[in-house]
Design a protein around this nucleic acid. Structure first.
Length: 874
DNA sequence: CAAAAATGTATTTTT
DNA sequence: TACATTTTTG
């Protein structure tokens, strides 16, 4: 009894169904009565866009630069397919990367085509479509169709248990790290058997593979999946059951993929399985793949399997042609590939024409979003990348009124926030909507300072992304209760809340439940029930356990009868969970209660507890209220796909952006990805773009002197304007930036990065050495002269960050010393009681010395911890 | 078993 | 620094 049948979804149903045109046309008709000529939606498309919409047959790759109307093409294309009766809504597979994108496509298609969207069950993220497939064919993957989807937290806890079971040192082999590795393998489509020997050895003294296997087995017994499985299981099913695959080959007449540059190997395999229809095919494809050094994925081999059966019904006859034709349309932009770190393979997009011979490639290069200045800046920047297909975006002729891209220096991050805040207030006074303003940061810790500032200014802001609703402690607890009620065998959820609120069920008791569960082969909840009736357990925990078990069985019964929202309320009430927070006097308790209410409220939108749980597992974010006029604050990554009238990009400093870690781990490729991220950031802006950098930033609680991002140097001068801030300390930025006669040598920097790999942590010798190198580079490239009196900080042309008088720090010296351990080197640099001077904090005396970290009592600024490199003897 | 203290550890992005 | 997690203490 495999999952719900197609007919439930009203999709492709039978040989005698109406002709496709029928339904689609009717749907259209309902939505937009008679006058809606089929070509209506085509109006306003430029020739390339139109071509992308109308080339419905065969493989199509649309290379859509930023702001060129990518989503419009995608949605119009679907509308076109429907309107011309080429397919039923249910015969279109449209995959996106994020829920946001899926949602947007649904709405936009909806407005084009009306209710037909209702019948588009296969529009969604890779993962949500994966779940759908898997629910139907769960038994082929050894699961029941009511399997649960584990989130990262569940996974980590599970792995931790496995590591403990193996008696491994948890500190040496952290669960998070291993779950990361598993994630990576799954992104590559590798099961336990497929991982490389090296990978297998890399963890836990060679137990990597064994652990991975154990993990998968555990998932199976738990009847659970992690995110990766949502893709991998379907892939495996398709490979092992050609009949199932064929079913989907018949079903999906058109495949559309959004953000193709972000697909990882697993997603790529998945797509190829679905897209490459079995017909007589030469093996050259497969050869190509291996010849080019790609992993010989089994997709290609298994593909070649049975030839299309031509025997069946009229449908086979109709589709015989189409089945060989791969109507796949991938839309993407190699310049916006920013998820390489999580397994995305830009290569997928670069290789498209080889994968799908005869593909039509359409470039969308006309930008409808940004001014010529912004576009000019972005294009010039991205041109520094080598690995790209190369597009040339263009726009209308520049309007002399258009503002240039602003670059502004600040002293530290606090000032940066102040400057941005002031600029926003100015804009607001001129009638600028806050909703049209965004601040895009590289890393989320940067947000705090802006939030602080906006709070004091009373400026509305909204954080997008960030810590997500469903990841909050109280929500996860509540969800765990619900999960156990919905499926009594969800051990992970059970374990999470047996002792919440505190019932005196500690480690010992839980272990006992665990053991019983193992021994008897029953879920923990059941085991708890057994235990509560036996006398192997002390009276106190026994009573508590009894109550828990009784609670759950009562709730489970109510599941059938009581509306799920009421049940949810009852559960939280009777379990004492809400009471727990009511009694909690801490500052966050009221907020948590509020969140719980919100949770119940959001459940109303779903028809059952189960469907709600599914939603939460897949869509981890909660919607925000759009009514409020507020500045958006988010990371660059979550800004992809959005656009704003005005964009602020703070933190353009080496080490932060490009991020040190990207450089360390990714080398040149890492740098290029950072540059693409910068490109994404720049191209979010329609009209006003402000870049900021500061010379002092606190990282890990230590003050670091920073230098401007190399990306600033990669912007074309003619599109950029440097703002002189009248009231700020000025920093070294403006003067240097403006008069840069010898631009920052990117190659030089690359060399440094390549020849002396930084280590992964800021506190390490590698990082410090990097700092030293950069100090050097800064002097050379930003026109700083040593020998200036330090008093001159604050005037435009002066060096404020480095150099002058800081005798104890010479790059070379540091190089030599820092090979040693960071905490033990140069013990003699300063000693307690020394008078020192710091660029930011002024004079002070050393209160404590820990290797190169000094605790200093500053005369004005109070006690701070700083690296010795940033102070000099007073 | 729970609360307090100490310790450690990571601070990029997320379906 | 700041947070989470572990160890110690009551």
């Amino acid at each position: 009894m495999s999952a719900p049948s197609d007919s439930a979804r009203g999709s492709f149903s039978g040989p005698n169904g109406p002709r496709p045109g029928g339904i689609a046309a009717r749907a259209l008709g309902r939505a937009t009565p008679a006058e809606s000529a089929p070509s209506d939606y085509l109006r306003g498309l430029n020739p390339e866009q139109r071509q992308a919409v109308e080339t419905t047959e065969g493989p199509v790759l649309v290379l859509a630069g930023a702001g060129t109307g990518k989503t419009r093409v995608l949605t119009t294309r679907i509308a076109h397919i429907l309107a011309t009766g080429r397919a039923f809504p249910s015969q279109i597979l449209a995959v996106t990367f994020t829920n946001k994108a899926a949602r947007e496509m649904k709405t936009r298609i909806g407005s084009l085509v009306g209710e037909a969207v209702e019948g588009m069950p296969w529009l969604g993220t890779f993962h949500s479509i994966g779940v759908k497939l898997l629910r139907r064919h769960a038994e082929l993957a050894g699961l029941r169709s009511d399997f649960t989807i584990l989130d990262t937290d569940d996974v980590n806890r599970l792995i931790k248990q496995l590591i403990q079971a193996e008696n491994l040192d948890e500190k040496r082999w952290p669960a998070r790290q291993f779950s990361g590795m598993i994630d990576g393998w799954k992104n590559k489509g590798q099961g336990p058997k497929d991982i490389s020997e090296g990978d297998a050895r890399a963890f836990a003294n060679g137990k990597g593979r064994q652990l991975y296997t154990a993990y998968q087995e555990r998932l199976k017994t738990l009847n659970a999946c992690d995110f990766g499985d949502l893709l991998l299981h379907p892939i495996r099913i398709f490979r092992e059951h050609p009949d199932v695959l064929r079913e989907y080959h018949r079903k999906f007449k058109y495949i559309l993929v959004d953000e193709y540059q972000d697909t990882n190997t697993a997603q790529y395999m998945w797509l190829r399985l679905l897209a490459q229809r079995p017909k007589e095919r030469d093996t050259s494809d497969a050869k190509n793949l291996t010849a080019e050094g790609r992993k010989p994925d089994r997709a290609s081999a298994d593909q070649a399997a049975p030839a299309e059966a031509s025997e069946q019904s009229e449908r086979a006859a109709v589709s015989a042609n189409q089945l060989q034709q791969i109507n796949i349309c991938c839309v993407g932009d190699d310049d916006q590939s920013i998820y390489g770190w999580r397994g995305a393979e830009v290569d997928n997009i670069l290789r498209f024409e080889k994968d799908f011979p005869g593909a039509t490639v359409i470039k969308l290069e006309r930008n409808y979003r940004s001014t010529a200045h912004i576009l000019g800046a972005a294009s010039h920047l991205i041109a520094h990348n080598e690995d790209r297909l190369g597009k040339t975006l263009f726009t209308e002729a520049p309007d002399p009124e258009d503002p240039k891209v602003n670059v502004q220096a600040g002293w530290d991050s606090e000032e940066e926030a102040r400057i941005v805040g002031e600029t926003i207030e100015t804009l607001q006074r001129r009638g600028h909507k806050l909703n049209d303003i965004a601040i895009l940061v590289r890393a989320s810790f940067q947000m705090r300072e802006f939030e602080d500032r906006f709070v004091t200014l009373g400026l509305n802001y909204r954080v997008i992304g960030g810590p997500r609703f469903y990841e909050r402690l109280e929500i996860r607890d509540a969800m765990a209760f619900f999960r156990v009620v919905a499926s009594a065998s969800d051990d992970l959820a059970f374990e999470r809340i047996v002792n919440v609120p505190k019932r005196g069920l500690g480690e010992a008791t839980i272990r006992q439940i665990h053991d019983t569960s193992r021994a008897m082969g029953i879920p923990m909840l059941e085991a708890a029930g057994e235990l509560a009736e036996s006398d192997e357990i002390k009276p106190k925990p026994r009573a508590a356990l009894r109550e828990v078990v009784a609670n759950f069985s009562r709730w489970q019964k109510l599941l059938e009868t009581l509306p799920h929202t009421e049940l949810a309320e009852q559960i939280l009430e009777e379990s004492g969970y809400t009471a727990m927070w009511k009694n909690d006097r801490s500052a966050e308790a009221p907020g948590r209660l509020e969140n719980l209410k919100e949770l119940i409220r959001s459940m109303e939108d779903y028809e059952s507890l189960r469907s709600f749980l599914e939603h939460v597992a897949l869509v981890m974010d909660a919607e925000q209220n759009e009514d409020l006029d507020a500045v958006s604050l988010m990371t660059l990554h979550s800004a992809k796909g959005l656009e704003f009238e005005t964009v602020f990009l703070p933190g353009w400093e080496e080490g932060l952006f490009p991020h040190q870690r990207a450089l360390d781990e990714g080398g040149r490729a890492g740098l290029e990805e950072e540059r693409r991220l910068a490109y994404v950031g720049l191209t979010r802006a329609k009209r006003n773009l402000y870049l900021n950098f500061v010379s002092n930033r606190r990282i890990h609680g230590l003050w670091q002197t920073t230098i401007p991002s190399r990306f600033l140097d990669e912007l074309p001068e003619k599109h950029v304007e440097v703002i002189e801030s009248s009231n700020s300390y000025g920093g070294y930025g403006s003067g240097g930036f403006k008069g840069r006669h010898n631009p920052y040598g990117a190659s030089r920097f690359d060399k440094a990065a390549a020849s002396q790999p930084f280590s992964s942590s800021y506190g390490t010798p590698g990082w410090q050495r990097a700092q030293a190198n950069r100090t050097d580079a800064t002097r050379n490239n930003w026109g700083m002269r040593s020998g200036h009196a330090v008093e001159r900080i604050g005037y435009g042309e002066t060096d404020s960050g480095f150099g002058a008088g800081r005798g104890s720090i010479k790059a070379r010296t540091i190089e030599g010393e820092l090979v040693a351990k960071s905490v033990s080197n140069e013990p003699a640099a300063f000693k307690v009681g020394d008078r020192v001077f710091h660029q930011k904090f002024g004079n002070g005396s050393v209160a404590a010395v820990e290797g190169n970290k000094l605790t200093i009592d500053f005369d004005r600024a109070g006690q701070k911890r700083v690296l010795d490199g940033f102070v000099s003897a007073a």
